[in-house]
């Protein structure tokens, strides 16, 4: 039995959808941000750096979203090419590309105050981050246009859920400010997000966290 430590609409969402899609039993535990629970001694014992999500498994607690997703896919033999499959190489390349380039670029675009170093530096920092995010999105869009099984609208995959969640985040903007990134050119990625958000696993996760029914393409912020 797994135990998912989560916050609503956090990176834990991709893990939750993956668990739902695998159909494995799990419990979840909400980490209260206001109470600072991710900094509590109990959570630090599980996750020394206070990172969310964390998944408790029979093999011990796992953290880092990408590590959890990859471990679940390998453990259950689903949602990614298996280690001996011929398309494992291509999958790994783009999975690590998404976690190393798209994920941090999206965080930098949305939360420059955490990463830019100073308020004065934020405009230039955001401009550079937007450029990096657009570059990463256009490459992934090109990959998705070929509809590989591991990044497809019709077949669930950990990479599909991961990228769709990052697209969800990019629909967020601070009140009174425009969206930082125009997502309309990325039609193949949009198709992946639109296909995956209608899956029962995604709808169930949306209901579990109270997120509406179009969680990837038209989130309700």
């Amino acid at each position: 039995m797994y135990l998912l430590h989560y916050r609503v609409d956090n990176a834990s969402l991709a893990v939750r959808i993956t668990l739902n899609e695998l159909g494995v039993p799990y419990r979840d535990k909400l980490l209260n941000r206001e109470a600072g629970e991710q900094d509590s001694a109990a959570y630090r014992a599980l996750q020394p750096l206070g990172l969310i999500p964390a998944l408790e498994t029979p093999d011990g607690p796992i953290f880092e979203t990408a590590a959890i997703l990859l471990w679940l896919a390998d453990r259950h033999g689903a949602l990614a090419p298996t280690p001996s499959a011929p398309d494992r190489a291509a999958f790994l390349k783009w999975f690590f590309f998404a976690t190393s380039h798209l994920h941090p670029a999206v965080l930098h675009v949305l939360y420059p105050e955490k990463y830019a170093g100073s308020p004065a530096a934020e405009p230039a920092f955001v401009r550079l981050a937007v450029a990096r995010a657009n570059l990463a999105l256009s490459e992934l869009d090109r990959v998705a246009a070929a509809r590989p099984a591991w990044l497809s609208p019709d077949q669930p995959s950990i990479l599909g859920f991961y990228v769709a969640m990052l697209l969800r985040w990019l629909h967020y903007s601070k009140p009174g400010t425009p969206l930082q990134i125009d997502l309309s050119p990325y039609r193949a990625l949009h198709a992946v997000a639109a296909g995956l958000e209608t899956r029962p696993a995604a709808l169930k996760a949306a209901a579990q966290e109270g997120l509406g029914s179009t969680i990837f393409t038209n989130p309700d912020y």
Binding site: A116, G117, A120, E122, A124, F125, L128
Partner: peptide, 8 residues
């Protein structure tokens, strides 16, 4: 200098 420019 890469994330935010030389000023910071």
């Amino acid at each position: 200098e890469l994330p935010g420019g030389e000023a910071v």
